[in-house]
Amino acid sequence: MNFLDYYKILGIEKTATPEDVKRAYRKLARKYHPDLNPNNKDAKKNFQEINEANEVLSDPEKRKKYDQYGKDWKHAEEFEKERKYQEQSSNNQRQSYSGAQSEGDFSDFFESMFGSPPGSGRSRQVKFRGEDYYAELHLDLIDAFRTHKQTLTVNRKNIRITIPAGIENGQTIKIAGHGGKGVNGGPDGDLYITFSIANHPEIKRLGIDLYSTVYLDLYTAVLGGEITIDTLSGKVKLKVKPETQNGTKVKLKGKGFPVYKNEGHFGDLYVTYSIKIPTNLSEKQKELFTELSES
């Protein structure tokens, strides 16, 4: 738990008037409000800090206490006595902005000095959806290939979710009602999970299509033959045409990635042949190649 410089957070001097505080707060609230900064975790953190700073600096009593004891916040007993006295003697209706119902997340520093944070002016009277939670889930390509269940721990609660096959890297899904508790009887928020899918060492994905490189020996490339390759759905036999050129692409229909939420539908797998030139040739082999080159 660290000391928070509320003046610095609002970008004002210690001599700032209540109007200066209000002006600075409004300006920063508009800049960092979560509604105006979707997917920006830093903005949310900043917004909580400025809300907290405003809660203290716009209240003459809290500001006085903060100015007097702020840096010595560890003297909790003294503060606590004063806090209890203040709770009995004042009932301030402070105006603070609600940021998608997350305004309650004040710092430990705040709570040690002033007790539990208050709700915002409006949210005390009205029903609000709970805060939305955001989480990131890391999968590998093979996990994303099949529909499977996974248990997540979000805010100390275990949630078992079904991840449909074909989920995309960076895609976000919503789990309704698994966010923060609603305010004043409002509905619970939602949980948003963004998937981060790691690259596969041999198979690349683009949407529903897969791309892989298969190494062919020179003899199979020249004379043709049959090879077995690995795909995400198992091994597949492929016929190689005689005189196959390096870089030839072959499309394997339906051997790609599953289409998200469209069971039984798959993209294609594109195989690129890379021909390996033999090394460590024996004298006999060299002779045969020379013979070939002269024929």
Partner: peptide, 12 residues
């Protein structure tokens, strides 16, 4: 609810 926050809280 987002519009309400923008209008009433942020005075936009």
């Amino acid at each position: 609810e987002k519009f309400i926050r923008l209008y009433y809280d942020l005075e936009i």
